[in-house]
Simulated scan of single mutants.
Amino acid sequence: MTPVSFTCIIIGVLLNACAQLLLKAGVNAVGQFDITAANILPVGFKIATQLPIIGGLALYVVSVVVWIVGLLRVDVSIAYPMLSLGYVVNAFAAWYLFGEVLSAQRLVGIGIILIGVAVLARG
């Protein structure tokens, strides 16, 4: 994998991860709610107008464009597993930003993901 190809893939992964974090921030701002026929439109409107939600969706669009450029240069059998790096980024970002728990079991899983990505990147 060339440096340019690797950069495209990593930027796509990071944009996707950031989009996920923005979506989480947006729904956190809305708060817990029940989905009922009576409140689906007001809650849907409230969600759709949250700036973090809008930003997250916009980042998804940009990440898809960058991802397509990456797929032009890298085999999908290598590129697609690299998306799992997003799990690693989001686990640490969610711990830092949202106070989510990083248990020993999650850290072991993150380690396994990193080993898998390293094996794939070398092959």
Rank of each mutant, 00 (worst) to 15 (best):
I110H: 06
V27Q: 11
V66Y: 05
A121P: 03
G86D: 07
Y80R: 01
A91F: 08
A48C: 13
I47K: 04
L107A: 10
S77Y: 13
N90H: 01
R122G: 08
L15Y: 01
V108F: 15
K24D: 04
N39G: 05
F6G: 02
G86T: 04
G56P: 03
L57G: 09
A17W: 01
A29F: 06
A79L: 10
V30M: 05
G116T: 06
G44E: 08
V66H: 04
L41E: 03
L59M: 15
T2Q: 10
I78G: 01
S77C: 12
L85R: 05
L114C: 14
V27K: 06
K46R: 15
V30K: 02
L21S: 09
V108L: 15
N16D: 10
V108D: 10
I40Y: 13
F98A: 04
V64M: 15
F6I: 09
N90T: 09
A25H: 12
Y80Q: 06
V65H: 09
Q20T: 07
P52N: 08
G86P: 03
V117T: 03
T2G: 14
E100A: 09
V30I: 11
V13K: 01
F98T: 01
I68W: 14
I68K: 13
I40A: 11
C8I: 00
I11E: 06
G44L: 03
I10S: 03
P42R: 08
L71I: 10
V43Y: 01
G70K: 04
A91C: 05
K46P: 00
G12E: 01
K24L: 02
S84R: 04
C8P: 00
G26A: 03
T49D: 07
A37I: 05
G56Q: 08
G55Q: 03
P52S: 05
F45A: 02
V88H: 03
K24C: 01
R122P: 00
A91E: 05
I10R: 00
C18I: 10
K24F: 06
L102W: 13
I10W: 11
A121L: 15
P81G: 07
A58N: 09
S84I: 00
L15W: 00
Y80E: 07
I10N: 00
L114T: 01
S77H: 12
I35L: 14
Q105L: 14
Q50P: 08
G109V: 03
G56L: 07
G116P: 04
V69S: 03
L59C: 13
Q105H: 14
N90D: 11
P81Q: 12
L51V: 12
